[in-house]
Write a protein that binds this DNA or RNA. Sequence first.
DNA 1: TTTATACTGTACTAAACAGTATAGAAGGAG
DNA 2: CTCCTTCTATACTGTTTAGTACAGTATAAA
Lengths: 192, 192
Amino acid sequence: MTRTVFEKADVIPLVAEVFRELGYEGASMSKITARTRLSKGSLYHFFPGGKEEMASEILAHIENWFIRNIYEPLERDDPLKAIHNMWREVDAYFRSGQRICLVGAFALDETRDRFASGIRQYFRRWIDALCAALVRAGASTDAAAVISEETVGGIQGGLILSRALHDETLFERTLAGLAERVTKCVREDAGR
Amino acid sequence: MTRTVFEKADVIPLVAEVFRELGYEGASMSKITARTRLSKGSLYHFFPGGKEEMASEILAHIENWFIRNIYEPLERDDPLKAIHNMWREVDAYFRSGQRICLVGAFALDETRDRFASGIRQYFRRWIDALCAALVRAGASTDAAAVISEETVGGIQGGLILSRALHDETLFERTLAGLAERVTKCVREDAGR
DNA sequence: TTTATACTGTACTAAACAGTATAGAAGGAG
DNA sequence: CTCCTTCTATACTGTTTAGTACAGTATAAA
């Protein structure tokens, strides 16, 4: 009999995809074992704390991805380039709206209260990093604060709408619209 | 012993609130009975089809509310007044972001597939009604289509963000920002 | 006052649930 | 080879789940 051997680093994205598709409550252990092809033994070996530990590690894994690929570039690199990189990475990460934001989904029901600090931090840091990049690019502090909040919110709304309407083009349209407004905001303020 | 007698019209909003707090999968029959104080017998009397029938009737109830209070005014009344009315009603309905959009939440996981047509219709009609009102108010067809999509998406994003950040002021700020952009869009196009 | 209807409460079943225990397989170290 | 560690598979626990059955209660009409 063939035995597939996993490492924790391989398991987390696999389980994450199940949570993404079914939500925290919808993802029962049996659904997770069925969809990942991992046995209960393996899952409890990697996550002795069960579902709660899985979700907690997944959230940390997601946050690390965003820190490395989005937040740190925004904080460190040339702001306009980093923002351009953000649109590209976000579109790829959410597969043009075919893949949801697990953190956003968790925020909508009582799951939020279990992982409150992780969820809060994910959005807080995203908004703050974008805001700081906009200020460095020449936007006013006030305008940057407003538009960075609208941008992160707009992305979440775009994900909901594109799924609800089964419209694969909607998310990319949303990103393009947000990108245009961000660019305009920087141009206007920098031109003063 | 006192016996509280309900009608279906009273039961739907009660059960809806439980779905809103816990999501479709999280709302088990025992949680529903505990939070609504309705017995299993009563619930299955009103909804012989169980959870699926409950959610289906709740979605219909929500859509009716939006038709009466938002979509029809947008389609029928003075467009600027109807749009102004929309901001007020939406803020009240979602309790300034303290209450989520059940339809949006359903759209994020596999629950979407169970209620696909209801979910699609809710957003489709909202966007279309707003778009038509904007055109009647003097906006160009293209600009109206873009901004009405951004508005409905922006509302959903604002709900996620205000919950995620535990920021009660964020949703109202989002609505105010959207209202400003909508007003500007109408003014610019009508002035041509 | 009888009788039908509408609603409630509870006891029940079978399936699904989270989690545990444990035996065993693979692979490397000695 | 043996031994140890890491990972997998499955059988098992008690609990919770959705849903059914049915007896019981209030109300209104006849």
